[in-house]
Design a binder for these strands. Structure first.
Lengths: 106, 106
DNA sequence: ATTTAGTACTTGACAATACAAGGTAGTAGA
DNA sequence: TCTACTACCTTGTATTGTCAAGTACTAAAT
């Protein structure tokens, strides 16, 4: 899978998944993996960055199956950012697809 | 426009445009710009890289409106690479869009 | 009791690529 | 001669994803 395609899109997907409901990192890795193949070490830095930028708030909860879980909750700012990214992505992918598909039929 | 979304996709678009017919750099910048906003300094390094990788062949032609034009012609290898990238992109963007749109309707 | 597997988080070195800004040159018109 | 447009190229910088390694907790297997 082309690594470059993922740039920026992973951020959008992570935001969209956390928007649905609060999630902890490990859970997110699995959720993202269902959409696009991704490395564990990729998700955690994204979570940290998005938290630093004020898009997420975090809290801890205990687990019976392992160490503490760090949950991520989306903020109002994160909500807006997610919607903006979504719109940008839909426009972008549409432009590219329109061109690619037009060429394909020739 | 989100810079990150473009990563890897510009390569695909450049390949697809040159596949259509031989193009010179400056012309390509304008053609790509019609699809997605792009900087001149971004295209030339991509052309150089794709040529080094054997996807393009180049030749010069004179012009009445300025300096020599360096034309890029796609090779058989470039053709294959273009088709592969196209498939990868279509699959990738479909996965992402399916998830994004599903979420949007909720 | 020790090892193994699964869960969970973190970090640091590295690679790829887009952009901004700048430079070099040729042609043509004011 | 100066400006504008055409045409090409390079360098430094920032962003972001990957890989590899490490820490640590729980529970089941040896």
């Amino acid at each position: 899978m082309n690594t470059q395609f993922k740039k920026g899109v992973l951020e959008l997907i992570v935001l969209a998944i956390v928007e649905e409901k609060d999630r902890y990192g490990y859970e997110l890795v699995e959720a993202v993996s269902k959409i696009i193949d991704v490395n564990e070490g990729t998700i955690y830095p994204i979570l940290k960055r998005l938290t630093n930028e004020g898009f997420f708030e975090t809290y801890f909860e205990e687990s019976k199956e392992g160490p503490m879980r760090k949950y991520y909750h989306i903020t109002a700012l994160g909500h807006n950012h997610c919607n903006e990214l979504k719109e940008e992505w839909l426009q972008f992918s549409k432009s590219v697809n329109t061109y690619i598909k037009r060429r394909k039929e020739k």
